[in-house]
Write a protein that binds this DNA or RNA. Structure first.
Lengths: 198, 198, 198, 198
DNA sequence: AACTAATCGAGACGGTACGTCCCGTCTTAGA
DNA sequence: TCTAAGACGGGACGTACCGTCTCGATTAGTT
């Protein structure tokens, strides 16, 4: 998402500023929401000129998207358990926790903005959603290999069914995002996908 | 979402203008998306002064929300079938068709805007989502009464699981919203909720 | 300045309303100035519908102009004295008093508005200024007849010289409009126009 | 009348834009009159964003006032003649010429607007009128020193008497502003103020 | 140590949409 | 038929934020 490369001469880019900008964007948007925050506010909090932001990212959406990828992404490691299916359940709990954290608002904001910004939509899909879905798919595949799930499952569809309701509640707010929800999602999923009993 | 009630004297509201404004809003937003449309454009298309819009609704979001409720709402009748569970499946197909229609963009727009506008969020939830969920819940209850579903189901949760994935795909676009998706949602739902076999 | 004549049938026009409207316009504009007052305010104070105003006058300027003519005009009678030249001096004092009264602001307002409203400008000139100038000219003529002034005076010019400085101060505010000013105007005028001494 | 001073950092004011804005305001208002011109029109003609105007001046009146001071002011040099009293007469002719030029409308517009805008009134008085009056007063004083005028004259009053009728005609239009008028004003003024004959 | 060249903080800029205000017209129900 | 009330179309206002542009000061490698 970065724009230019390092030059040969002159004052080198202050790489630390990058992080300060992303942190400022992250803090502000997590707290107030994307729309409520202006680029000037981000620049002010990062103690940086507005141009420094626009030299690195093409627009506000890109900054916030990068903040998510760079600062939040690494914190969202996939939990591992010897039993793949248990690892799946742990991951659902993590997702619940994530959505309930201050980052819930960040995700909502970006998803909202993406509806009117195709570039952001693609970035969010390909750089945030898809990689995490791949983790899920891999675990599900491992569960199939371990004989814990039927082998004729459409894994993409399965992922939609596991995570769709979480996003739905995050965005619409008819019910809150809780571990109890994760439990039911997991149970129903297993009920529909456990291997045929003999 | 309307602002004031009819006064005792004076020229009464031109109810026809109401409809023209809502239709203009609906057409424009369905075609171009919420953010791309300005209040002036809506006013111009409805051949109405901007003040006439602001006299009735507090902001653009409220206009478009009302357009959804007044002009689209009545078109979304719930399908009925003697067998409740079949009626449920028909409703899923209708939802897919709705999301694929031009109104898909409208729903996406409003849901997006609702993320940064708590007033709109509440209106969307309470006036659009909840009434439609109630229809679903009623059908599911009828299915239980007809012995087609287990009686210990949490109906709200069930609704989330049936519709969550549809909204997820609508908003994120990892996969398209299709009847095939509806089929799988239905099947998995039945697998998890059919009455215990003796 | 009135727009239509009395109708033949139906509820007769409430002639009292006319006066109430003019009085409201006069009071408000005298106190706050033309630009600060809206037609709605005049209608509200006169307890009259806005349409009742626009049925009688073509616009706000016409109402206020009429208020001046109808309500203030009759109060501005020309003072008479056996000696014409003394009558002239009295009139200057009256003008000073008038400009210092609440009507000063009214005159300023109308004169201001007239600069961007040719119709009002003409009305103000022909219906307010010119008649009063004619009074002045008549008195000056009488003074000539009485042998108190030179007979070769251009009376229009003389009037400009007597009243111009009063209006100048009223509008620009470099100095206040006082009887002392009137005295000097009178003296200088006499110095320039008294009959040649033998 | 400008709003803030130059900051220590940041892009400095584009002083060229200032002039373009003032020129646009001057041209438009001189041609069409103050009330007929919108801030958007000025911005468009100056090829400038509306905010750039509002960043420098608090409102339209201030822009036009500054246009007068900056662009017209320097053109209104006081004529000089060895004989002070002749210089005075020349100045009266210049004033007539000025009022008959396209700037006559500008002066009328500003004077009109000043009647409902105390801030503008003060600016017009203190920055336009007073400096020019001071020129007149100085010349009159010189004439006294040269023994061409009585020494007991109130110079402010004298100025009002010389210029008041010109403004009166400019604003009311009962007669036109001509050199003939200037001649009479001058003659009468001299008649009333020439030194006593021995 | 002086020079060079690119970056930096700051903030002005053109543009676009917003939501408000008032004018003069139009429309109703009631007198 | 006229009135009070007030909704209406139109158009200007002054504000906010976006993403771009421009300045003088800063900084590090090159000479």
């Amino acid at each position: 998402m970065r724009t230019t490369d390092a030059p040969k001469f002159g004052r080198p880019r202050n790489e630390g500023a990058d992080r300060a900008i992303l942190q400022a964007a992250l803090d502000l948007v997590s707290a107030e929401g994307y729309r409520a925050i202006t680029v000037d506010q981000i620049a002010a909090r990062a103690q940086v000129g507005k141009m420094t932001i626009y030299r690195r990212w093409p627009n506000k959406a890109a900054v916030v998207m990068d903040a998510l990828l760079v600062l939040v992404g690494p914190e969202t490691d996939f939990p591992s358990a010897p039993c793949a299916i248990e690892s799946m359940k742990k991951q659902l709990y993590l997702q619940v926790k994530f959505f309930r954290s201050k980052y819930g608002r960040l995700i909502r904001s970006l998803l909202a903005e993406a509806q009117s910004n195709e570039e952001l939509a693609e970035a969010f899909r390909e750089r945030w959603i898809v990689p995490r879905r791949q983790g899920v798919v891999a675990v599900l595949q491992r569960a199939i290999d371990q004989g814990k799930l039927r082998s004729d499952i459409d894994l993409e569809l399965a992922t939609d069914m596991l995570y769709g309701p979480l996003y739905y509640r995050l965005l619409i707010g008819t019910g809150s995002v809780t571990n109890a929800l994760a439990d039911v999602l997991y149970e129903q999923f297993m009920a529909g996908h456990e291997p045929r009993k003999k």
